[in-house]
Amino acid sequence: MFKRIVLFLATNLAVLALLSIVMAVLQNVFGVTLGNNGALLVMATVFGFGGSFISLMISKWMAKRSTGAHVIEQPRNEAEQWLVTTVRRQAEAAGIKMPEVAIYDAPEINAFATGPSRNNSLVAVSTGLLRAMNRDEAEAVLAHEVSHVANGDMVTMALIQGVLNTFVIVLARVVGRVVDGYLNGNREGGPGIGYYVIVFVLDMVFGLFASMIAMWFSRYREFRADAGGANLAGRQKMIAALERLSQTYGESTLPKQVAAFGISGAVGHGLRKLLMSHPPLAERIQALRDAPVAPVRGTVVG
């Protein structure tokens, strides 16, 4: 946990340093009046990184609360025992601490992983998955989620979102100052009403582009988790699990704050595809089929 906090602080300081340099250049070289830079950077930090950091820290609690997930403390039946045993084995193979294992009531085939760190995480599966998938397919889904944890995807996603939020807040207000000053003849004094209108519009426009960047990473991490799941459970099992998802998948009932962490999500077309958290299942299946075969441990590759 301490390492994650240090990483957040280091990233935050690096972003603030870069923004400070950019704003200094705008003021001293181009003569752009930006107002109180210190206050702007503090606000960007609090609302940009602060929100992402808090969301990360409470992610497990929010996931349990929003889905009604039941954490398996003591397995009550053979299925729960299998889930715990499988996740424990995969976590050991991935080099992470045992995640909490939970089941939540939902009709669709789905699962998710969340948590503030690789060693403080939650892996949950839906009751629909347990009913519809055989053990090989379910094993691959669990391996996919354990791979998300091992890759540190939750922390990386929070860092990316924090950086993007900070840039959106600062850039919208910097551009707003410049445009407002130009429209009002570079007059001195506080910003006019036009400034607040411009900032409101730019927050939405820049926020849209920021969302595209965040969702690009989200799609990339799904391919990476599929590859990790194939390494932990076997390529054919991972392909079979994704094929089963493609045959039976419907609209996810996962809450919005958890949906991006599910094994499957809604897919759009055209420009809408840029805002989707998951790539099409057909692309994920093809990527696994096209991936080079990993050598078996203990063999010699010539």
Rank of each mutant, 00 (worst) to 15 (best):
F167M: 14
L83S: 07
A69I: 11
S66K: 05
I5K: 10
A124G: 14
V46Y: 01
G176W: 02
F2T: 07
V42R: 06
N77K: 10
I58Q: 14
A143M: 02
V197S: 01
Q286D: 03
A214Y: 08
R244G: 00
G250N: 11
W61S: 05
E145F: 10
V149I: 13
W216R: 15
V197M: 15
S55H: 06
A111D: 12
M238S: 06
I96H: 11
Q257A: 00
L16I: 08
V174F: 14
S126M: 07
V141A: 05
S52K: 11
H144Y: 10
V197H: 11
V155D: 03
G115D: 03
S66A: 04
Q236S: 14
A39Y: 05
M98W: 10
L275F: 15
V205S: 04
S246A: 03
I58F: 15
N120H: 13
V168H: 13
V22H: 08
A113S: 15
V205F: 02
L130A: 12
N28M: 06
I169L: 12
L288A: 04
F261H: 14
F2V: 09
E80C: 08
Q74A: 11
K273C: 00
T11R: 09
V170T: 12
L122V: 09
S52F: 04
R235M: 04
V6R: 09
N120C: 11
V178C: 03
E145W: 03
N151Y: 11
G265R: 00
A24L: 11
G95I: 13
E222A: 14
A24Y: 04
G189P: 05
G162P: 11
V29H: 11
V258Y: 00
P279D: 02
L19N: 09
A14H: 08
A230L: 03
S277Q: 00
Q286K: 14
M215K: 15
N37G: 09
I263S: 02
V87C: 06
G51H: 07
V175R: 13
G181K: 10
S277F: 01
W61Y: 05
E243T: 05
A14F: 12
F206Y: 04
N28W: 01
S264Y: 05
I263W: 01
R118K: 15
A266M: 04
V6S: 12
F209T: 07
L122A: 06
Q236R: 13
G207A: 12
R235K: 15
Q257N: 03
A94F: 14
I213C: 02
A14R: 05
D226P: 13
T67Q: 02
